[in-house]
Design a protein around this nucleic acid. Sequence first.
RNA 1: GGAGAGGUGCCGGAGUGGUUGAACGGGCGCGACUGGAAAUCGCGUAACGGGGGUCAACCUCGUUCGAGGGUUCGAAUCCCUCCCUCUCCGCCA
Length: 414
Amino acid sequence: MLDLKLIRRDPDGVRASLARRGDGSAERLDDLLRLDEEWRSATATAEAERARQKAAGEQIAAAKGKGEDASAAIAEMKAVADRVKEQTARAKAAEDELQGLLRSLPNLTDPTAAPQDTVVREWGEATKTGRDHLELAGERIDMERGARLSGSRFAYLRGDLARLELTLVSWALDKLAGHGFEAVVPPVLVREEALYGTGFLPDTEQQIYHLPADDLYLVGTSEVALASLHAGEIVEGLPLRYAGFSPCFRREAGAAGKDTRGIFRVHQFDKVEMFSFVEPSASADEHERILSIEEEILQELEVPYRVVNIAVDDLGASAAKKFDCEAWLPGQGRYRELTSCSNTTDYQARRLDIRFRPDGGKPETLHTLNGTAVAVQRTLIALLENGQQEDGSVALPEVLRPYGAPSSLPSALG
RNA sequence: GGAGAGGUGCCGGAGUGGUUGAACGGGCGCGACUGGAAAUCGCGUAACGGGGGUCAACCUCGUUCGAGGGUUCGAAUCCCUCCCUCUCCGCCA
């Protein structure tokens, strides 16, 4: 949610920032300003009536206390009470409409968010082509039985690969702990408020699983649960950093026919996610910091990648700026998104009412950021395809050895 | 799933229709006392919104006693819905 006071102070600046999204949100600003004026005028009227009512109420109380008859005053107050009710309702209606519009607007855009997708840098040799992850994994990625159980886009991870997931996660959590991120296993079944608070609603409803019998939603990322960790709080000790490990659920409606082979795009996957709560002045640096951790992870996993500054018209509602790390996948012969990190500035924090107290000052809305550490399924693809040998076996990165990974996975060919 | 109890300020805990933003205690801050400290005493201790303002640490009005509705001249106190916590039984990883 945007800061209403900022919109009042600098409507043109806000309009220009929103206009970069090209989604029509900038055009709704005039309506918002009009509603704001209406709300303020209605509020002033309602509060003046209310003040009169309270003052008269005290007199009635005082009179009764002295044993005097207050029935005349009470009769008179009925009219005032009606007027208070009427004006309060008017102010509430204006406020509801204003809030509704305000909540529908996406975040402002960062001036350094790119006009078009822009490659920031590349790392590693992105030249190799070869077998894809399904050929290399064999039955260790079991799509057929996954589909028999749950439908398309579901898979069993078996044997070596099931073990490798745990290795990756435990390695990642250790690494993140070294960077100050506390490990968290969050709930993945959440209330609607959490999705509104993080800006996934009303933005991506077609992606989200809903359980109507209990009115709960399955999260598409632990970002939702991590952001809500401090909802409604005035937190201390910034920066606060969390590494969430959880399954993620996505309906992938609208992605029919896209990435249908293998586990690149599935309805359920596991992810280690970074999430930071920081002071506003620190969020740009934190964004770079999270990006550098993502790069460190890919480098240590020996996966060639490139960093892309994502086009401003392609950002989700809550992000002011986003980087993707795209890994080179020899099976596809191209770069594909593996991880991603966003600076959501104060957008989620305002919706979730998360603040901090600056030195001796009044509470202020803080900034939140999120980034993928390890998206397990896609990382497995990258490891399999980049580590593949002539004979179909797969060399694994050295860093995983201390966590129990073998130096290579046996071939599934044969 | 069944049966009860309860949600009040930073914390504990009063308060069942009328100057209650909220007794009392604790914590915390400032001051006094002290060579210093403890103890003691005094004062203070929220957030949000509107309006004003030398746009500020200020003034003023309003809101907030889990959330949202309702009754009433007036609600923390009465009614309804929802959320949460606790206890007992059942069930279960």
